[in-house]
Amino acid sequence: MRTRIVPQRGFNLDYLMWLFTRISGLAIILLALIGLAMGFYMGARLQTDIATLFRWTFFPNPNHVVNSNIPDVTLGWANAFWQIMQMLVIFFAGTHAANGLRMITEDYLGHSIGRPILRGFFFLLWMAFLILAIYVIIGSAY
């Protein structure tokens, strides 16, 4: 049995991502609560199913909540404030997720030759996800 190499203490990637995971988790919960409250305020409280409520909560985008039986969705949602909120959600969630995938795979791989390859792969996946999602947000602004 091989011994596990414990990460160094101090100011490094592992510490930064440990801190970021916690802060981004709290930020996602806060942003989701804001989205949920504003969704209720703008009319989601009448005859809304859970799936629609999910959409109001996590991704308040006019194209995203378009099926929700509320006539004036674009009135309250299509402005720069909600676009910035969506980008924040996407940034925190995407980075949290990419780092989580890295941690899970590195737990099972350990220090092997696949580690830098996987890190590069997750980095590319993260960048592609962020660019795609921001493109969707900007594209559905009107």
Binding site: N63, H64, A93, A97, F129, L132, A133, V136, G139, S140
Partner: peptide, 13 residues
């Protein structure tokens, strides 16, 4: 979420 974003991109485009 990943598949949903891809699907939304596909629907939008």
């Amino acid at each position: 979420v990943g598949l949903h974003v891809l699907a939304s991109f596909s629907m939008q485009q």
